[in-house]
Each structure stands twice: as structure tokens, then as C-alpha cells.
Simulated scan of single mutants.
Amino acid sequence: MTQSVDDAMRGFNPVLPLAVALSGGADSVALLVACAQKWPEQVVALHINHGLQAAADSFEAHCRALCLQLNVPLRVQQVDAGKQPGQSPEDAARQARYRAFRALALVDTTQPTIRSIAIAQHADDQVETLLLALSRGAGLAGLSAMPAHWQREGVDYYRPFLTVAGADLRAWLALRGIPFVEDPTNHDARFTRNQIRATVTPALQTAFAHYRDTFARSAAHAAQAQQLLEEVAVGDLYSIGRDGDGAPRIKVLQALSRARQANVLRHWLRSVHAAVPTAAQLTELLDQVSACTTRGHRIHIKVGSGFVQRNIDCLTWYNP
């Protein structure tokens, strides 16, 4: 069920001190204000200046003024969000943002290390993420949408507002007379997420009044199923892996069903080599594994930035 801001904050109890990612928009401003009120002098704001639009400096100026008013320390970092070949601009910005978050969390060595960072995505963002995943034909990992809590490089990240509607955050700010900035890119129809926000979610609201709750429940079911698949993959990789380096042994892999082969190979590539195969690459790899019945059978398939190939009786991945 969707919640009010106050109810969501009552259920949010991270390890302190806490850092809040602050863009200057309504969602992050509401999160910072709510956290600063709940934990005075225990909250730090982190602002990432991507420099991707002309308004970036005015966003930073707004964040500085707000933090001065709230008596909250502000840490700012400019980042280069240039994308790598095959990487979307959004993913490049996201990866740069997380690197900057961790750097900013550790920047002041005279204070206790920040191990908790809160991010302000809300229930409408969760719906948009799920719809984007469906539009791309995502598997369970994508349909799980955004987790409320996860860990990355020793830092705990939280999304305490995933159960709060975006309109409720803005109403909460309006009651308190707290200003925020509007990101002009939020209305740019070139972005699929903005198209969903402008056309799809209003239609959902008309047809299914409780769609935020039901979509969140479906995402939770997908996340639970994905966790089970991960546990199966860990066990399977242990069973099929070669002693010493854990490289999948082809004959043992072939004894698994095709679905379990796909599951364990996807897990192996992602967890060991940080390589994510496309659906076409994974299908080709499974076909090659199935056909690998002779000594001379060769496997050499592009996956991520490298290649999966056969090495005697095992599969290996290498980045040339």
C-alpha cells in the first residue's frame, strides 16, 4: 500500500550518520527535509553536478541555499558522465553518480564514515521502471524493479519513498512552503520514461486506481523469484565449476536442463566477469554448449566487452 511521507519515515531506520542524495528536485528535497528533521546533525547532503545541462549550476546553487537553511552540510562533486561504446547516456550518468556518491561519503576523514545513503525514488518511479522493463522484454531481474535497500562497495543504499506517490511528496513540501527546482528534462518527450509519465500512467490511474500497489506487489514477487534463481545458480556453479578457477565444465553443464544452463551461465558471467549477455548471445551460447560433443568443436561468442570460448573441457571468458 502507498504511504504518507510521515509513515514512510517512521519505517526508515538506517545506520547513522546518513547521507541524502540531493538533486534539488521535489523528491530529493522532501527526503532531505524529512531526514534532517528526524535526525538533526546526523545528516549530510550529497549533490552530483553532471554538467549535462545549462541549469546544472542553478541546481547546485539551490541545493547550497537549502542546506544552509536546514543547517545540513553539503558535499558537491562534479562528474564526467561520458559514455563508453555500447552504453546509454542514462547508464553512464548512473554509474558516474554511484562512484561520486561513494567518494563523497568518504571525503571527510575527520567525521564518522558514512555507510548509509538515501535516494529519493518514489512509487511512481517504481511503476515507470517496471513498465520500462516490460517494454524491453526484461527477465525477472528487470521486473523486480528497484529494491528498497541494497549494498554496493561497502555502502548501504536506501529508497525509503518507494511506497510514497510523487504527488504526495509535492503536497508535503507545499504544506511546508519549501521550494524546489524543476528539471526541464523531465518533460522532454525524447525520453521513454517521460512518455510513460505523460501518457501511460494517467491512463493506468483511470483504469486501475490502485495500480501503484499492485505493480509493487508484482515487482516484489519477481524479486523473490529472482532471489531463488540466484540461490540455484550459486549451487549449480559450485557443482559444474572446475576446481581452482570455477570455470564451468561443459559436460557437467550439459547434464542440466537448458533453463538451468541459462541461469547458471548468466550468473557466472555477471558475478565473475561483470559481463551481461544479451538474449541473442545467451541463446547462441546455449546452442553451442549443446552442440559441443567432439574434441574439435570450437566456441567463441561475443559477450559484453569480451568473449566466451572453449578451453579444453571448460568455458572461459576473456577480454582481449
Rank of each mutant, 00 (worst) to 15 (best):
S144A: 15
H62V: 02
R266S: 15
P17T: 10
V308L: 09
G241P: 00
D287M: 07
S144H: 05
A220S: 14
R258V: 15
Q226Y: 14
Q3D: 06
A225K: 11
F208M: 12
D243K: 15
G154T: 06
S116P: 01
A165T: 02
D183W: 04
H62G: 00
F191N: 02
Q37D: 12
V276Y: 10
N49C: 05
H297N: 13
G154A: 05
A216Q: 03
N186H: 11
R10Q: 14
H210D: 15
P147I: 06
S257N: 09
G51Q: 09
E90L: 07
Q53D: 10
D243H: 13
G296Q: 13
G11H: 10
H122V: 03
L140E: 09
L131M: 11
A96E: 01
L286P: 02
A220T: 15
L130Y: 15
L52M: 13
P14Q: 04
E128V: 15
Q288D: 14
E231W: 03
P17S: 09
S257L: 12
V72T: 13
K83G: 12
A219G: 03
V107Q: 12
Q77V: 02
R99S: 02
Q42S: 13
T113W: 02
D313N: 14
L143E: 10
A34W: 00
V43S: 07
A198H: 12
I299H: 02
R242D: 02
N263R: 13
F101G: 04
Q309R: 15
A56R: 04
F59G: 00
R193C: 07
G154V: 05
W172F: 05
Q78D: 12
Q126M: 11
G86K: 14
L132V: 13
I250L: 13
G51A: 09
H187S: 15
V303G: 08
R260L: 09
L286E: 05
M146V: 14
S305D: 15
G304M: 07
R176W: 09
A220L: 13
A279F: 04
T201A: 08
Q288L: 14
R295Y: 11
G166D: 06
R260C: 01
A45T: 01
D243I: 07
K302L: 13
L256H: 10
L74V: 06
A61R: 12
L143F: 05
A274Y: 11
S135G: 14
G154C: 06
A207K: 08
L204T: 03
I196G: 00
V264I: 05
M146H: 01
A145V: 12
A255N: 13
T214H: 11
H187I: 02
P147D: 12
E60R: 07
N263D: 12
A123C: 06
